[in-house]
């Protein structure tokens, strides 16, 4: 059989979303970011929102998200994405505005902005990549780092005496009246990716329907920071991260 027989349009079962461009990603092999970027590109395209999307990228590994997804991007200062998105949405109420943030950005330096944007019920979606570590700066402890987990700044393992406890941002946000949808997902296998896509789409639809703030936490791997192979990182995440951060909806109103 000739290759051209196979690639006929009627045989096409999958293609790269057109909003995901061909720039070489800087993410490590095994990282969850690329999958989530792809889901966002698919959803924005499927919703027909390309011309009306304003995305806000963080400081951290995803700072360069703007290099890969072909929508307009604002790169925010560390932790300030929800404040940046607040203004972008209030001044452009008919646009789709979302932030894309890691756990250091969102749950440490940006905690105030996160809590208050959600509490005001800003009509934005916050996509929260939680891999329990600072990836970009070389694997330091995050607020979400598990007890006992070894990082560059807790080289003997995180201890509550020294560092406190893993911070559960989604549980906090779910208590806020302004948040309409808070869910925790992952992208480590096909079933999880499908569920995560559905969740992000619901967040975006909530934003356009002005239902309040949606926070989609994606529990993710950082196999480089965790010093594991990608498959070991996935297994470790299922065993340890999911125990601390259980999957599923925390709020959906």
């Amino acid at each position: 059989m000739d290759i051209n027989e196979i690639i006929k349009p009627e045989n096409l079962v999958y293609s790269k979303p057109t909003l995901l461009n061909d720039n070489t990603m800087h993410y490590c092999p095994g990282c969850s970011h690329g999958v989530v970027h792809k889901l966002i590109a698919e959803i924005v395209e499927e919703m027909g929102m390309t011309q009306d999307t304003i995305a806000v990228s963080p400081v951290g590994c995803a700072v360069f998200a703007y290099n890969y997804v072909d929508v307009d991007w604002i790169e925010a200062a560390h932790g300030r994405a929800p404040a940046v998105a607040t203004a972008a949405k209030r001044l452009n109420p008919n646009k789709l505005v979302f932030t894309y943030q890691g756990d250091g950005d969102l749950a440490a330096i940006g905690t105030a902005e996160t809590i208050h944007a959600c509490n005001r019920g800003e009509n934005i979606t916050i996509i929260f990549i939680n891999n329990g570590i600072y990836g970009m700066t070389g694997g330091q402890m995050a607020p979400t780092t598990l007890e006992g987990m070894v990082t560059a700044t807790c080289p003997y393992g995180r201890t509550p005496e020294l560092n406190g406890y893993p911070l559960h941002i989604s549980e906090l946000v779910a208590k806020l009246a302004g948040a309409c949808y808070v869910t925790r997902q992952s992208v480590h296998n096909v079933a999880a990716i499908r569920k995560a896509k559905k969740a992000i789409r619901q967040g975006f639809e909530n934003s356009m329907a002005k239902k309040g703030t949606s926070l989609i936490e994606i529990v993710s791997t950082c196999n480089t920071g965790w010093k594991m192979s990608p498959d070991k990182a996935n297994a470790w995440m299922e065993e340890h991260m999911f125990a601390e951060y259980p999957m599923g909806d925390l709020k959906n109103v």
Partner: peptide
């Protein structure tokens, strides 16, 4: 739009977000 922010830090970053949109 007039908004009381949670901090001066948030307020200037709201300005950053609005100005990015040409406002």
């Amino acid at each position: 739009v007039v908004l009381q922010a949670e901090s001066e830090v948030a307020a200037i970053n709201m300005v950053y977000g609005g100005a990015s949109c040409g406002k």
